[in-house]
């Protein structure tokens, strides 16, 4: 059975998916400056996947891509956790903060709007966790929609 909503719903959801994904990526990338972070931004991007599945009733076969993305996210998170030991400190130590490289700028003390090139390993961990959460929640939605008959896999 082919499930499909009306053409108005499909057009509006196809247009609205773009700002939802951009807002989620903004939440992930600015996690060390504004409220948000990896988990919140990943959940917002995964809700765009839910919108596409519910409105169109069909999605391409992204199962392998999502699995690879999720495993890569968890592996990079482990590697970032052990980076502190490699640099000579304890586990989860913020060894890149203030060193001047990527995400290595210094912040002023007190209340300030902030600068995105700061934070050390915290923005990198935000990006990695966001990648994992996007892939995990999208994969759960994809599998449940396919097996409940509400979505058919496009070739």
């Amino acid at each position: 059975m082919k499930w499909k909503m009306s053409v108005i719903v499909r057009t509006v959801s196809d247009v609205m998916v773009v700002p939802i994904i951009v807002f989620g990526i903004y939440l992930i990338l600015h996690g060390h400056l504004t409220p948000g972070g990896g988990f919140q931004g990943g959940a917002v991007v995964a809700s765009a996947t839910a919108l596409l599945i519910v409105s169109n009733g069909a999605l391409k076969d992204y199962k392998g891509d999502f699995s690879t993305m999720e495993s890569a996210g968890l592996t990079f998170f482990f590697l970032l956790a052990f980076l502190g030991i490699v640099m000579g400190f304890a586990m989860f130590y913020n060894s890149l903060a203030g060193t001047g490289g990527i995400f290595g700028g210094t912040v002023m003390s007190g209340i300030n709007p902030g600068y995105i090139n700061t934070g050390g390993t915290v923005p990198l961990m935000n990006i990695v966790v966001g990648m994992e959460v996007i892939a995990a929640l999208s994969l759960i939605l994809w599998m449940m929609a396919k097996n409940s008959g509400m979505m058919e896999v496009e070739k």
């Binding site: 996690g31 060390h32 400056l33 504004t34 409220p35 972070g37 956790a81 586990m91 989860f92 913020n94 903060a97 203030g98 290595g104 700028g105 210094t106 912040v107 300030n112 902030g114 700061t118 934070g119 050390g120 390993t121 915290v122 961990m125 935000n126 966790v129």
Partner: peptide, 18 residues
């Protein structure tokens, strides 16, 4: 110390990273 403006994110990903 951590060069992070958002204290909530600093606690989540650095002090309580485990």
């Amino acid at each position: 110390h951590n060069q992070v403006n958002n204290v909530v994110t600093a606690v989540l990903f650095d002090y309580r990273g485990l």
